[in-house]
Design a protein around this nucleic acid. Structure first.
Length: 1150
RNA sequence: AGUCUCGUAGCUCAGCUUGGUUAGAGCACUACACUGAUAAUGUAGGGGUCGGCAGUUCAAAUCUGCCCGAGACUACCA
């Protein structure tokens, strides 16, 4: 006996997966999958580097499954697929983790702990969970080369980044500039948007807000075509939630297309008449309808309703250019103090201005708002920064009564003691000046500014306003927007190119590429590279003290040379960096070491490194180059491996890694269009989030996070992988439900496992080893040809789906094939072929067919379910040695045999399935079990094609349904009644409004008219008194019920069942019942399939006829030598037939 | 606030590109059947205002608009 197919008691995923993993490792399958394809074309994949300072979660299994399956698929398509792992090692999350571990804050770095120690700690911490990541990688069957990863903190990696930055600098794509950034005065540091997006950062706060009156310069008003006709000053109204920024006001912004009005009214604080400008849409917000056109003379101070009158309307564009008086003048905010530009206090147009709230006119303080800064710059308006980095007013913002000057602008910055002291001072001054009778509590800067405005007649309205405002996550104090120096990459210069190049990238799903990503590119701002932190890639820029000279270093070589130059000039005296054998400086390119290097400017000045680090996103975005230490090494490899054919990450990376890869790729293209094609990846799959089963975000805090380390072993990695792929498209969010994983395990893998077990069981009995010559397809029975046809159709579907990056479609197609076609139809119908009869052509054909199906499935499924695919493949192939390749992952993807696809065959098998389903439902309805044979089935046929198709599957249907004959009734029989229905699609397009009438008319056609239509191909019908000609394609003709029969229909198929049971049929039914029950007894008493028996059954008249008639048949089925009826049978065993209980003796014969 | 995704049966999803007349699967549930794949299998049944409203159309789950809900990202603005 030759080798047997392994048989198992049950499907033990854990055992399968660990066995397969061991095999992969000992046989070095992954290495071979790349090494053996050294000369094959590359399919380039980039691994987005994870950060190993966090524990991997179930969503990583999702992302990595997507990555892995396409890489495996492409490998099977004959490509060489390098998979270099990578680790993202820099950045804030690492630093925050270390701060937490050490129990320190940013301020302590350099004080309580040296930068050197701190960074050392970061370096250690960042790979803290590396073992967990590696364990997961193995456990889930993710193939990636962990032995030679790129690590972003490596000197080589940093050197590549420096080189890129230098290239950008040379091309004028790197510059230093001022921007408005979130800044925490309490912490003394700028905040990244990441930090600002920490949960709980935005809080509801109540602020004193004011609508201030900005008085137009009389000269400016006099020159205005419309406003000049008014006597007295016109004021522009602008609302602010931050009155402390008013001393820094330098402009007012209007919307060019917004409608504005001039209104004459009375200032409630001064009781003076005034003329004010605000947006027309917001008039009702500031003026009560009852007050319109009321006589001003009737107003008394304190009246609720204030009279007002609309005296002019104009567009925002008409206001642009008007100049106004500075609202609050102090020593420190004179015109000479303007920064950036010399103009100020003018009305400008701003695209961000809306009429949602306020007055439709925005107070602009360029230093304290990003929009403000931008619009001021565009209009040549200067900035005033009247608050310092501590969050205090400049000394020169001083008022005799209301104080200010070195006061914190936000109340929240004061300690209780400071507040108490300030309160005492305020009390003294304000009471002395008679501004208040008795001051009871501290007045905030905002409040006092509003009071000052009120007193000076510049306040139109004040109110408390609740809104959300960002707070520093570390100090819990409000954040200010503040101008800070930063280094930028001039992304805006290549914006058009970025947009254009993006259109050549295949996005999955497409909408993310055109929508989210495309829109983002179109609105891209310059990339702020600077980060004021410690653990990261340092900016390679050295500057002189006054900033007049700077040098961007692009390599260690250059740094060494410059260092030596500076040394010659006497700099770097206290540094003891040595040169390595290769002549290069032996230096860690991190802080604090690089900061010690002083370079020499061309004019002989010392230059120090710019203190900032670069954004970690630049690290990962530069990985296509830096992973190879390009351009210093691996030129060839880089060229082969750029750009990527495929990347895949979470959708949250759209503006992260996907963006930085793209931006850098486009800018490299600017530098050298030949070397760099302008894209970093050709295909990108952005997968959705993994949520818990109720659709909530997973979080450790809520305890709903799914731990891959318990889930994977519990259900099997392949179950999880398959579930993730099959359940929803990768780009849709996945509601991860363990019950669903279990369902996949049972439904798909269980079924496939059973199918294999079935095969193994009988193939082992018969010694089938695929040693016989392949039986030609046309010599195999219909059902074999059918499943092979479907199998080849399936290969095409799966291949197309993988090629389209639609793994879900592939998984679903495979699953449908396995569950519905292979297991539930092919195997079920063919069972008998495997256990009955001689080991001859038909049986061999069955084995060959099923083997082919299983082996092909093992290959088709292996990209998604690498373990099970491997297991199945090897179980089969180890026995037959049919394929010389020992691992499924080294095989080629199954090629489609188009000649074996027979659509007509697929169609008629579908008919057989439908007929079976209908007849079974009929049997069910009249309660006749399948074991009871019936005489005939009638199927009306309206076409020859139909008749022909049905006849070919007749035998199948009959045996499946236990019916003696299948009668096809054609028209000629006269039994069929036809039913006619309008074809809405074809008729509707033609008839339009008359469609309804036509449908009704067609439904009413009688048999004769239908026949006429069929014969002549057309017919005239009356619709709403109009004659309409219809042809065959305008209708559907179906067979209607057969009178007097049990009938069922599905689609166009109608089936009738003859339910009369003749004596012979009844006898046969009894015989089969008997067989069934004796078989069960055989099984109960543990007889072998081949043991022979003698049977003695209690005498019974009901049985007698049946047994007489079918004795031979019964004996053959139950392997009985003798079947006798006798009186007085004494036995423990009995059978139940048609509600009669009969004693029985089943006696084995040796 | 903007951009994008999603909303179809108790649950997970097809169908929507290209509108066409009982809206489909699987799971779960219930009942029945099968019993030489048995830790399996088959059949049937119930269960749906296709998120809501309006529009276009002879016809809308499908196209358009608005709204509601969930989520992601980005931004933070008087």
């Amino acid at each position: 006996m030759s080798v047997k197919y392994p048989e198992f008691k049950f499907l033990d995923f854990t055992a399968v997966e660990s066995e397969v993993n061991t095999y992969w490792e000992t046989a070095k399958v992954f290495e071979r999958s790349i090494r053996e394809r050294a000369d094959s074309p590359s399919f380039v994949f980039y691994e987005g580097p994870p950060s190993a300072n966090g524990v991997p979660g179930i969503h990583h299994v999702m992302g990595r499954t997507i990555k892995d399956l396409f890489c495996r698929y492409k490998t099977m398509q004959g490509f060489k697929v390098n998979r270099k792992a990578g680790w993202d090692t820099h950045g804030l999350p690492v630093e925050l983790g270390v701060e937490k571990t050490l129990g320190i804050t940013k301020e302590d770095i350099g004080k309580k702990i040296s930068v050197e120690e701190y960074n050392q700690k970061c370096r250690e911490e960042v790979m803290k969970y590396q073992d967990k990541w590696e364990a997961l990688t193995r456990m889930m069957g993710y193939w990636v080369d962990l032995k030679d990863p790129y690590v972003t903190y490596d000197n080589n990696y940093i050197e590549s980044l420096w080189w890129i930055l230098q290239q950008f600098y040379k091309k004028d794509l790197l510059y230093k500039g001022l921007t408005i950034q979130p800044y925490s005065p309490a912490a003394g540091t700028g905040l990244s948007s990441h930090e600002l997006n920490q949960p709980g950062c935005y809080k509801q706060v109540k602020d004193t807000t004011a609508v201030a009156m900005f008085e137009l310069l009389s000269a400016s008003q006099a020159n205005h075509p419309l406003l000049s006709k008014f006597s007295g000053a016109v004021h522009i109204l602008a609302w602010t939630t931050t009155p402390w920024t008013l001393p820094s006001n330098t402009a007012l912004a209007v919307g060019a297309n917004i409608e504005y009005v001039v209104i004459e009214t009375i200032n409630v604080y001064t009781a003076q008449l005034c003329k004010v400008v605000c947006a027309k849409a917001l008039v009702s917000k500031h003026f009560k309808a009852e007050g319109e056109n009321v006589d001003f003379a009737t107003y008394k101070p304190g009246d609720k309703v204030v009279p007002w009158k609309l005296i002019a309307e104009l567009k925002g564009a008409d206001l642009v250019g008007l100049e106004y008086q500075q609202l609050l003048s102090f020593e420190a905010n004179k015109k000479e103090c303007l920064e950036g530009a010399s103009e100020a206090w003018r009305v400008i147009a701003g695209d961000f201005v809306t009429t949602e709230d306020g007055t439709g006119i925005v107070h602009i303080a360029p230093s304290f708002g990003a929009d403000d800064f931008r619009v001021a710059k565009q209009n040549g308006i200067g900035a005033l920064t009247m608050v310092d980095r501590r969050g205090k007013f400049l000394a020169g913002i001083q008022d005799g009564v209301y104080l200010f000057g070195e006061e914190y602008v936000k109340e929240a910055y004061l300690t209780d003691e400071e507040k108490q002291a300030a309160f005492q001072q305020q009390k003294q001054v304000l009471e002395a000046a008679n501004k208040v009778k008795e001051l009871k509590a501290y007045l905030s800067v905002d409040t006092r500014i509003v009071l000052k405005l009120q007193e000076e007649g510049k306040l139109f309205k004040k109110e408390n306003y609740e809104h959300s405002y960002p707070h520093c996550w570390r100090t819990d104090k409000p954040v200010l927007y503040y101008p800070l120096d930063s280094w930028f990459i001039a992304v805006t210069k290549v914006k058009e190119s970025m947009v254009a190049k993006n259109k050549t990238i295949n996005w999955k799903p497409e909408a993310t590429g055109t929508g989210r990503f495309g829109n983002w590119l179109e609105n891209a701002n310059d990339w702020n590279l600077s980060r004021s932190r410690f653990w990261g890639t340092p900016l390679p820029i050295w500057r002189t003290e006054d900033g007049s000279e700077e040098l961007v270093i692009g390599s260690l070589q250059q740094l060494t040379e410059e260092y030596k130059k500076a040394q010659v000039a006497g700099l770097n005296a206290e540094n003891n960096f040595v040169l390595k054998e290769n002549g290069l400086l032996d230096i860690d390119l991190h802080k604090p070491f690089v900061d010690k290097v002083i370079l020499l400017s061309s004019k002989g000045e010392p230059m120090k490194r710019e203190a900032d680090l670069i954004d970690v996103w630049f690290d990962s975005g530069a990985m296509p180059l830096a992973q190879w230490h390009y351009p210093f090494e691996n030129e060839t490899t880089f060229t082969q491996q750029y750009p990527a054919d495929f990347i895949a990450e979470g959708v949250d990376q759209t503006r992260g890694w996907f963006y930085t890869l793209h931006a850098i790729a486009v800018m490299l293209h600017e530098i050298d269009p030949v070397k760099y094609p302008g894209i970093a990846y050709k295909n990108v799959v952005s997968n959705g989030l993994v949520l818990d089963k109720d659709g909530n975000k997973m979080s450790k805090r809520l305890g709903n996070a799914v731990d891959p380390f318990t889930t994977l072993p519990k259900y099997g990695a392949d179950s999880v992988r398959w579930y993730m792929v099959e359940n929803a498209n990768p780009w849709d969010n996945l509601k991860f439900d363990p019950a669903g994983v279990d369902e996949t395990r049972r439904k798909f893998f269980g079924t496939l496992y059973n199918t294999y077990s079935f095969f193994a069981l009988y193939a082992n009995v018969d010694g089938f080893n695929y040693k016989e010559a392949e039986i030609a397809l046309h010599e195999r029975p219909e059902i074999d040809r059918w499943i092979i046809s479907l199998l080849n159709t399936l290969k095409g579907e799966v291949k197309d789906a993988f090629e389209d990056y639609e793994p879900t479609k592939a998984a679903r197609a495979i699953q449908t094939f396995v569950d519905e076609h292979l297991s539930n139809w092919y195997v079920r119908l063919c069972r008998r072929r495997f256990w009955k009869g001689e080991y001859a052509a038909d049986k061999i054909a069955a084995y060959q067919t099923l083997y082919q199906c299983l082996e092909t499935i093992s290959r088709l499924m292996s990209p998604i379910a690498p373990f099970f695919g491997e297991w199945l493949y090897r179980n089969l192939n180890q026995t037959t040695q049919l394929n010389a390749v020992d691992s499924v992952h080294l095989t080629t993807f199954p090629s489609i045999d188009f000649s074996s696809i027979d659509k007509a065959l697929e169609e008629r098998m579908q008919m057989a399935q439908d007929v079976s389903s209908l007849v079974l439902s009929l049997r069910k309805k009249v309660n006749i079990k399948v074991r009871q044979p019936l005489q005939q089935i009638l199927v009306p046929s309206l076409s020859e094609h139909f008749t022909e198709q049905l006849t070919k599957v007749e035998a199948l249907i009959l045996s499946e349904l236990n019916v003696k004959e299948l009668k096809v009734i054609t028209e000629d029989s006269g039994v069929i009644k036809k039913k006619i229905k309008a074809n809405f699609k074809s008729l509707g397009a033609r008839l339009g409004a008359k469609m309804k009438g036509a449908a009704a008319a067609i439904a009413l056609l009688n048999q004769q008219e239908i026949n006429t239509l069929e014969r002549s191909g057309q017919l005239a019908i009356q619709v709403d008194g109009e004659e309409i000609h219809i042809s065959m394609q305008d209708v559907e003709i179906l067979a209607e019920d057969l009178a007097g029969w049990q009938v069922a229909t599905k689609g166009g198929l109608t089936v009738a069942l003859d339910i009369t049971i003749s004596q012979t049929l009844e006898n046969e039914g009894i015989a089969r019942e008997l067989i069934n029950q004796i078989q069960r007894i055989r099984k109960d008493i543990d007889l072998k399939v081949t043991d022979r028996i003698n049977v003695t059954l209690a005498q019974n008249t009901l049985m007698e006829n049946a047994i007489n008639e079918f004795s031979a048949y019964i004996c053959a089925e139950i392997l009985a030598d003798k079947l006798t009826l006798s009186d007085g049978v004494i036995s423990d065993q009995a059978i139940d037939i048609n509600e009669t209980t009969l004693k029985i003796i089943v006696q084995p014969l040796n």
